[in-house]
Amino acid sequence: MIGTVVPAGATGHLMLGREVYRCALGRGGVRAEKAEGDGATPFGPLPLRRVLFRADRLAPPPCAVPLEPIGPADGWCDDPADPAYNRPVSLPYPGRHEELWRTDGLYDVVGVLGWNDAPVVRGRGSAIFLHVARPDYAPTAGCVALMLPDLLQVLRAGLSGLEVRAG
């Protein structure tokens, strides 16, 4: 099932069937021409490739895509000059990267969205995830974020991707 994301000011709405969920979007808005570091959520189709989760905090969430637990050594390379750009890496890692094992709970559940991954184009953006939102729906660095109960509900409903629309 494909969800539709529609920007609505500084946040947006994810529509899945008849359900509508508030979501946080990138601080740079929604853009068709996404670039590394611009803070924008990419416009267009974003297939859900797999779901990562913190097994020490949650039971495996039911979902329609492959599911993998994450651990303290899991990261994601966001360095356009690195050969592992926009790919998972093991920590410690010498190139610029994000740590997936976070203390703030934002990555307790992470849907890896298919952006700039087939093939990877250096500088076109990395680590575009569907993840847990901050309580105030603060903007993301380019991801789509939902409150944890909503994220679990859309995964349980069989989410297989997002279609992000322009604002």
Rank of each mutant, 00 (worst) to 15 (best):
F129L: 00
W76K: 03
G105V: 08
F53C: 04
T4W: 11
V120I: 15
G167L: 13
L52A: 00
W76N: 02
A81C: 04
A24G: 08
A35G: 11
D79A: 13
A84L: 14
L58G: 05
W101T: 00
W115R: 04
G17N: 13
Q153A: 15
M1L: 11
G28H: 04
Y93Q: 01
A138F: 07
M15I: 14
A81W: 09
E36C: 04
R50I: 00
L159G: 10
A141E: 15
D104E: 06
A81T: 13
V20N: 07
V109D: 12
H13C: 11
D79S: 08
G29C: 00
V30F: 07
P45F: 12
G12C: 06
M1P: 13
V30Q: 05
G9K: 04
P139M: 03
G3V: 05
P42T: 02
A55R: 12
L152T: 06
L151M: 11
W101R: 01
P88V: 00
V6H: 10
G12I: 03
I70E: 12
E36N: 06
P94Y: 02
L16S: 07
L151G: 08
R22V: 12
R57I: 06
L146A: 08
P60A: 14
L151P: 09
L162S: 14
L67M: 00
S126W: 03
G75C: 08
R31V: 13
Y107D: 06
R22K: 14
L159I: 08
L46W: 02
R87V: 01
S160K: 15
G161Q: 13
P69K: 05
W76M: 03
D38K: 10
H97E: 03
F53D: 04
G105W: 07
E99F: 04
G111W: 13
A157R: 15
G123T: 11
